[in-house]
């Protein structure tokens, strides 16, 4: 097995593991469109990273300075800027939503498509760099090198640990934010942590399935898991397991049938969801004894 497949397997598995519990919260909080808006705007982050990288490189004028190396690494690897961009945007959206300026879905639609369009324009206008936009829109597992694997693994594990640690306040504020607040949960802090974790999934998952498909790694596995489970932790774990299987089967499909990896993973995920629909909804526990 070539290195790039192994790298994609490792990173994809870690992303699926963290997308399981986070995706559950996205589904429970009805934030699928919020996640999609952050993901679409990631392309704007890519464009800004490339602009900044290009500027640094040209300013260095051929010398092997710090700025030059930073510029090259930004062009090669825009995801730290994407992470920052997603974070700022997500937090800005949270603040805007709190002011109830527009209907949520309208506001999110404007942000998602506005930022995607501007990102595409910036990339198109860059004369000095030849950028394969498709790699960002639909993922490019070839771009993951060994250093990426290490950085992404550290970040994924950190997010997984954080979601475990914050589980109860996150869940409580998801069920009812006002009750949680009265009971001492800091809602703003919890929302902020959630959005940070979401931005991490977007920035990392972008490499595998791309900005247009990353939200499906968050919502399809939990939707598939929903019919099999009775409690929130069960749903998070089952969603993670399903997500990992999606990645493995999807990469295998891409490898053997010579197909693009991102769409293959999402197609497999969708197939699992449809198969899951054939199974009747899990019977409610305790229904018989108390109905």
């Amino acid at each position: 097995m070539p290195d790039f497949i192994l790298n994609a397997l490792i990173v994809g598995t870690l992303i699926a593991l963290m997308a399981g519990p986070l995706g559950c919260f996205v589904v429970w909080r009805r934030m699928a469109y919020f996640g999609a808006a952050i993901a679409h705007s990631a392309l704007l982050g890519v464009a800004l990273a490339l602009l900044l990288g290009g500027y640094l490189v040209s300013a260095a004028a051929g010398t092997d300075s710090m700025g030059y190396r930073l510029g090259i690494s930004l062009i090669d690897d825009p995801w730290p800027v994407v992470l920052l961009m997603s974070l700022l945007l997500a937090y800005g959206l949270l603040l805007l939503q709190r002011r109830h300026l527009l209907a949520n879905d309208t506001l999110l639609g404007i942000v998602a498509h506005g930022s995607l369009a501007i990102g595409l324009l910036i990339v198109a206008m860059m004369a000095t760099l030849r950028i394969d936009v498709m790699a960002y829109l639909f993922g490019d597992i070839l771009s993951i090198d060994n250093n990426d694997v290490i950085a992404m693994s550290v970040l994924s594990v950190a997010v997984i640990l954080l979601v475990i640690k914050q589980w109860r306040p996150l869940l409580s504020s998801t069920v009812n934010a006002d009750m949680a607040a009265v009971e001492g949960v800091n809602i703003h802090r919890t929302n902020f942590i959630f959005v940070v974790m979401l931005a991490c999934v977007v920035a990392l998952g972008m490499r595998i399935v791309g900005v247009l498909l990353i939200i499906s790694m968050l919502i399809i596995p939990p939707a598939t898991a929903r019919r099999l489970v009775y409690s929130p932790p069960q749903m998070a774990i089952v969603a993670s397991v399903i997500g990992v299987l999606d990645v493995w089967f999807g990469l295998a499909l891409a490898w053997y049938a010579d197909l693009p990896a991102g769409p293959a993973i999402v197609a497999v995920s969708t197939l699992f969801f449809v198969l899951g629909m054939l199974k009747p909804q899990a019977q409610q526990q305790g229904q018989g004894q108390s109905a």
Binding site: V27, W28, R29, R30, T174, V175, N176, P222, A223, R226, V229, Y230, S231, P232, Q234, M235, Q285, G286
Partner: peptide, 8 residues
């Protein structure tokens, strides 16, 4: 809460 949340 939302129906997608399985909770006893």
């Amino acid at each position: 809460p939302d129906n997608t949340l399985p909770m006893s």
